[in-house]
Amino acid sequence: MISYVEEGHVDDDDAKDIDFGELLAEMQKDTSERNLERQKAGFPAVRLNGWAEPPHYDPASKKLYWAKALEFEGNKDGTLNYSIRVLGRKGVLELNAVSGMKQLATVRSEMQSVLKFVEFKPGNRYEDFNEGIDHVAAYGIGALVAGKVAAEAGLFKGLLALLLASKKLVVVGLMAAAGGAKVLWDRVRGRA
């Protein structure tokens, strides 16, 4: 899944100071507290087991990587949520892959293939930020990782049904997505 969020320039100064262990504990607590709402809405409870790949930020390429290991009630195989965020001048390109936990190595490799198509045009790169005219996002690197638990619940409701029904890799077509990413990315770069 590829999307672009234009909520302003994300300041990456906090990247080196984030305690990702503490952040994980907060995310696990949030996930657990929202389970009652999920179950009332007819969705299974979910548990954030931990990092499948701990968050790491590459300040040179302005890319943030992490993967979460999740367990949905009724699915003992576990679910992988692999995420990459690419920072730009005015927003963030979001790349997400969801699969079974056993596909971590495959997903990591295929996401690198998708990243080959990701490049901001001059004028829209992170380093092109103009403090005098550009909007700054109300959050930093830590918030990109923590995300919005409610939004994640919405993301997973359809994917969970597919996982449970097929018990196969959900990330079918990641390579096709790479081609689609280039088309989408060309459109996004044209707007930004």
Rank of each mutant, 00 (worst) to 15 (best):
K76L: 10
P54G: 07
E53T: 11
G91Y: 03
R89M: 11
I84M: 06
G91H: 03
F43M: 14
V46E: 12
K68Y: 08
L48W: 08
E53C: 02
K40G: 02
V98G: 02
L87N: 03
E37S: 13
D58C: 01
V86K: 01
E71Y: 00
F72M: 13
E73R: 04
K62P: 00
L80N: 09
N75A: 05
W51R: 06
A69S: 15
D58H: 07
Q39I: 12
T79A: 06
A67P: 10
T79M: 14
Y57S: 08
A52S: 15
A45K: 11
A97V: 14
N75T: 01
N96W: 06
L70Y: 14
V98T: 15
E73C: 02
A67N: 04
S61A: 13
Q39E: 14
A67H: 03
S99E: 06
G42V: 06
A69E: 15
E94V: 14
N96P: 00
L48C: 04
A69Y: 03
K63N: 11
V98Y: 15
N96C: 06
E73M: 06
V46W: 05
K40S: 12
L64T: 04
R38N: 13
V98C: 08
R38L: 12
V98R: 10
G50Q: 09
G88Q: 05
K68F: 13
L48E: 05
P55K: 02
T79K: 01
N49E: 14
N49W: 01
D77M: 12
L93E: 01
P59Y: 01
Y65F: 14
A97L: 10
W51E: 08
T79G: 00
L64N: 06
P54V: 09
N81Y: 08
R47H: 11
T79N: 02
A52H: 08
K90E: 04
I84L: 08
A41Q: 14
V46Q: 07
V86E: 01
G50C: 04
E37K: 15
Q39V: 15
A41H: 11
L80D: 05
L48S: 03
L64E: 04
P59S: 14
G78T: 13
V46F: 10
W51P: 00
E53Y: 03
G42T: 10
G74Y: 09
H56P: 00
S83P: 00
E71M: 10
K63Y: 00
I84K: 01
D58Q: 03
R89F: 10
D77H: 12
G91A: 05
P54Q: 12
E73N: 10
E94D: 11
I84V: 15
P44A: 07
S83R: 12
L87K: 02
S99H: 06
K68E: 15
L70F: 15
L80E: 07
A97E: 11
L70H: 13
E71L: 11
S83Q: 14
E73T: 10
